[in-house]
């Protein structure tokens, strides 16, 4: 994988006398690199990076705060809140998100964090599942994922999960749409290059949910995948489809060892 070009930019600055800045910059980035894996953070411009760095400035924390409220709100026929069963999220949800998507033996299915949350609502709270991309589901996902911040992504890929990983990999290299582009065409072959105004990165999934400056809202990984497939002028797959679940798994495994950085901020 190619190194993002702003590393070169940082080096140029160092030569020009901005050594201290370049040093600080690359130390900050170092957290978001593991070997030749780079998270979207390392491609972001410095303003976007500093927005993510400060929890008081990061707009994603508006959703986190909402998620924290929902955590202890009783809902559904069972009259329970998440907190009634799980206690403090800081303890019970610590590092949980870094292991998703995860195989659920009980239902014989791979689930992402959103689906796992909704399963608890349906089974344990007797409450309606939250809709995809609804403010409540985004808020709870952000709150749960925050409890994994800094933890290395590490999804299980053996046993019943293996065919899903293989299918995710197949989809990553499959060309889609009228423009006939695969994920790899943009995110592997052209990693670090510019596509009009977009700085192409490695499609790492560790920052989701993400506050998207363009959308001015928090978005789920599923939303991002729908957008990327649609940009090839293909029929997108639906939310929660097997295709996106398998892609989520493959992306997570590709980024194994990178720290969870939710809620991230991206252009």
């Amino acid at each position: 994988m190619r190194r993002p070009s702003h590393i070169a930019f940082a080096l140029t600055l160092a030569v020009a006398g901005g050594a201290a800045f370049a040093q600080a910059q690359s130390e900050k980035d170092a957290k978001y690199r593991v070997g030749d894996k780079y998270t979207g953070y390392t491609y972001a411009d410095p303003t976007t990076q500093s927005m993510q760095d400060d929890d008081y400035v990061n707009p994603g924390f508006l959703w986190v705060q909402e998620g924290e409220k929902l955590w202890s709100a009783a809902e559904g026929a069972a009259g329970k809140s998440c907190a009634d069963c799980h206690g403090k999220a800081q303890e019970s949800m610590k590092a949980v998100g870094a292991l998703y998507p995860k195989w659920q033996e009980k239902i014989g299915k791979l689930e992402n964090v959103e689906q796992r949350i909704n399963q608890c609502r349906a089974d344990n709270m007797k409450a309606e599942p939250w809709k995809w991309e609804s403010p409540a589901l985004l808020a709870m996902t952000a709150y749960v994922q925050l409890q994994s911040r800094g933890q290395p992504v590490d999804v299980a890929v053996e046993g019943p999960v293996k065919p899903h990983l293989q299918n995710g990999e197949r989809l990553f290299y499959m060309r889609h749409g009228q423009l006939d582009l695969s994920c790899a065409n943009c995110h592997e072959d052209n990693d670090g290059k510019w596509m009009r105004g977009d700085h192409l990165g490695q499609a790492m999934a560790n920052g989701f949910p993400t506050y998207r400056l363009k959308e001015q809202t928090l978005i789920s990984l599923q939303f991002r995948l729908i957008g990327c497939v649609r940009d090839t002028r293909a029929e997108a797959y639906p939310y929660g489809s097997d295709e996106y679940l398998d892609l989520e798994l493959y992306l997570a495994h590709r980024g194994k060892g990178l720290p969870v950085e939710a809620p991230s901020v991206r252009r």
């Binding site: 060309r175 749409g177 009228q178 006939d180 582009l181 943009c186 072959d189 497939v229 293909a234 029929e235």
Partner: peptide, 26 residues
């Protein structure tokens, strides 16, 4: 065959083309 550049005048061999663009070259 590996290029990222689209074929601007071709309609065969494509996957899941958006319904309203099916059968049409770019």
């Amino acid at each position: 065959p590996q290029t990222a550049m689209p074929a601007f005048y071709r309609t065969d061999g494509l996957n899941r083309v958006r319904k309203d663009m099916e059968g049409k070259p770019i």
